[in-house]
Simulated scan of single mutants.
Amino acid sequence: MYNMKKTRIYSAWLLTILFTFFSQISLAAHPNQLPNQEPNREPDREPDQEVQHLITFISNSNATFIRNGDEHTSKEAAEHLAMKYRKAKRYAKTADDFINNLASKSSWSGKAYTVILSSGAKLTANSWLTNELIRFRNTKKP
């Protein structure tokens, strides 16, 4: 019985050492890549900067937002989406995620947000914000 207990202890230590060894080898093989970091992703712009641009864009748009059947001003919509971003940032690792996961539909009802522009054009929030994000990225590139 004593030998079996001793064997289990040695096995646990061996597994711990092997795990540590292989995890260190993995880090040594990719020294510039932190765990959970996308490989070869250029840090061209902070996602927060892009999301903040989108929220400011919404606020200044003078568009009417329809959320769950109710109309909201652009300022109200911007405040609502800023709150969603603060509370659910884990679902928005990028500005694209912000649009797709937080700014396009109600997390409560699942209904898509729509936007009525001052010109009278009616769009989905997803397409409107995606177009603005593309425009913003293209104008900010060197």
Rank of each mutant, 00 (worst) to 15 (best):
V51K: 11
N40T: 04
H53L: 07
K87E: 05
F19R: 07
K93N: 06
K140Y: 02
D44K: 09
Y85Q: 08
A78W: 11
N100M: 04
S23N: 11
Y2C: 10
V115D: 13
D70Y: 13
P43K: 11
N101V: 00
T139E: 03
V51L: 08
L102R: 02
R41S: 08
P39E: 05
L129T: 05
A103L: 06
K111G: 07
K122V: 06
S23G: 05
P35N: 06
K6Q: 15
N101S: 03
W13I: 04
Q37L: 05
K87H: 06
S61R: 06
D97C: 03
H72I: 00
S127H: 05
A63R: 09
R137S: 05
D44M: 08
L102C: 00
Y85V: 00
L34Q: 05
A95Y: 06
Y85I: 03
N131P: 02
S118V: 04
S118K: 10
R90E: 01
A125T: 02
Q24W: 12
E50N: 07
F22L: 13
K141Y: 01
P39G: 03
K140S: 03
L27W: 04
I9E: 12
E132T: 00
E42H: 14
N131Q: 08
P142E: 02
T16S: 10
Q33S: 11
H53R: 10
E76Y: 06
R67D: 03
N60Y: 11
P39L: 07
L117C: 07
T64Y: 12
N138I: 00
Y10I: 00
S104G: 02
A125I: 01
